[in-house]
């Protein structure tokens, strides 16, 4: 019995022990869609011989899941580099001391917030002139948005709060809800709903519109104009990362023209960068985040 237990214990411990990295490797957590990020990371592996160990997030929790994992691991980080497909959460990490001090957040490539509409139900000229118009009765029950607690929709809503002021913004959110706006799990789900014709119009990101068009959905997309925002990919190097040199190397690679071209080809970023509507004050946005999330939760979830 003792012999069996000893052997079983040995088998167990040897199987349970994590493999320490053999050879050069870099660990990246990325919220960029796996389909877009993976070929890029594989190209880095092939060119440099450095193995990339990646963690991707799930659509339904988007970046927030990875952010919280990074915060939870802050005191003993496993990750070397955080590649985000938007900016807000990266700045949040910086404010929480997760990112390396003295290393600026780098950004590259952009998507935009867009209208997406079902071309069988709406024409381009029938689009609302602004986001405020979504509260008009003609759009009752005809609009879908991603739940503004995650991802780029959350960032967009908080940017609007900063632009319009809290009072006007809260009134708009409540009016949206009262007007029967459908909130769904993610921007890709918005595109699916619009494509199916279940709603006529949605708010989403430009890469999701491109993905929908590739899938043959009867949709079209258009930037939001003054109410919109550019969503840039951002890179943050993690404080205390196990492999900072490789992280810097990967960060440089991600900002190369080759990667930009590959992401444009894949539809992950826009081919032409639209000039920013205004400079976003990220630090104050991050500071106001908790209050904004509380207001969003009380409006959209309770």
């Amino acid at each position: 019995m003792t012999d069996r237990l000893q052997i079983a214990w040995l088998i167990g411990v040897s199987l349970l022990a994590g493999c320490s990295s053999s050879g050069d490797s870099v660990t990246v957590y990325t919220s960029q869609d796996q389909v877009y990020a993976e070929p890029v990371l594989r190209q880095f592996e092939e060119e440099t011989g450095v193995r990339v160990r990646a963690v991707y997030d799930s659509e339904v929790v988007k970046t927030v899941g990875l952010i919280n994992r990074l915060i939870a691991e802050k005191n003993h980080p496993r990750c070397d580099l955080f590649w985000n497909n938007e900016a807000f959460r990266t700045h949040q990490l910086a404010a929480r001391g997760v990112l390396a001090t003295g290393v600026p957040i780098e950004s590259f490539g952009a998507r935009t917030r867009q209208w997406v509409w079902n071309t069988n139900r709406l024409g381009r000229t029938e689009l609302p002139p602004s986001l405020a118009a979504l509260t008009n009765s003609q759009w009752r029950g005809k609009v879908a948005i991603a739940l503004p607690l995650f991802g780029s929709t959350a960032t967009h809503f908080q940017v609007l709060r900063q632009r319009w002021g809290a009072a006007r913004w809260q009134a708009w959110c409540r009016a949206l809800l009262a007007n029967g706006v459908m909130t769904v799990d993610g921007n890709s789900v918005v595109v699916q709903l619009v494509g199916r014709g279940e709603v006529a119009l949605g708010l989403t990101d430009s890469d999701d519109v491109r993905a929908g068009l590739r899938n043959g959905l009867p949709i079209a997309g258009k930037p939001l104009g003054q109410d919109g925002m550019a969503i840039r990919n951002t890179i943050g190097q993690i404080r205390g990362a196990p492999h900072p040199a490789f992280a810097r190397r990967l960060a440089g690679f991600l900002q190369s023209s080759t990667v930009r071209a590959a992401l444009v080809e894949a539809g992950a970023i826009d081919p032409d960068e639209i000039p920013a509507i205004e400079v976003i004050a990220w630090p104050s946005l991050v500071e106001a985040n908790e209050q904004a999330v509380s207001e969003l939760t009380s409006i959209f979830l309770n």
């Binding site: 994590g18 691991e73 003993h76």
Partner: peptide, 13 residues
Amino acid sequence: NRPGLGWLYSGPG
């Protein structure tokens, strides 16, 4: 997710 358990937490273990 604690110091000293990285060999288990961040690997296949």
